[in-house]
């Protein structure tokens, strides 16, 4: 019994050490590769949310109204969750301009998603938004290639 308990304790300690190894010191600027990785991830998340919105908008007459509304809310929530840590982290000194562009793009994506969600919830026309979403998606793709190299 004692040996089993010790084994569980060792496993918990190993897990704790591994988790601690993944955290970074708050306030210090991210390294170049870490920042690029974060930017890639957050822009990917924004593209994912806009991609989901694109599928909803292209099929909104075929989807039940509550389903479309919840799907778009989920897309916004997901983008908020992913962008939170990026927005609070400090970029490397030579990446401030790129960082500003990423932050601005995230803001535009969030605003657009909110407009889409509001329009769909209110059963308003979404034809113009379809084109906006497609364009925003392509712009994010370009920005991701430029700043994150993927």
């Amino acid at each position: 019994m004692r040996r089993a308990g010790a084994l569980v304790a060792v496993l918990l300690v190993v897990l704790l050490v591994l988790l601690c190894a993944c955290t970074t010191r708050a306030g210090s600027p991210a390294g170049e590769s870490a920042w690029r990785e974060q930017a890639d991830k957050v822009l990917g998340a924004a593209m994912s949310s806009l991609g989901t919105a694109r599928v909803v908008l292209e099929n909104d007459t075929d989807l039940p109204h509550p389903y479309a509304v919840v799907t778009l809310q989920d897309a916004i929530t997901s983008l908020h969750r992913e962008s939170g840590s990026f927005l609070t982290s400090r970029p490397p000194d030579d990446r401030h301009t790129d960082n500003d562009r990423v932050v601005a793009a995230l803001g535009e994506a969030t605003t657009l998603l909110t407009r889409v969600s509001t329009a769909v919830a209110a059963n308003a026309g979404t034809a113009a938004l379809r084109e906006s979403v497609r364009k925003a998606y392509d712009d994010l793709d370009d920005l991701r290639t430029k700043v994150a190299g993927s």
Binding site: G44, A45, S48, T52, N59, T71, D74
Partner: peptide, 17 residues
């Protein structure tokens, strides 16, 4: 579209499409 699935709503969306 490079969409990542992180909500149940997305799991069912292809069926709606």
């Amino acid at each position: 579209l490079d969409v990542q699935v992180d909500a149940l709503s997305q799991v069912g969306l292809p069926v709606g499409v």
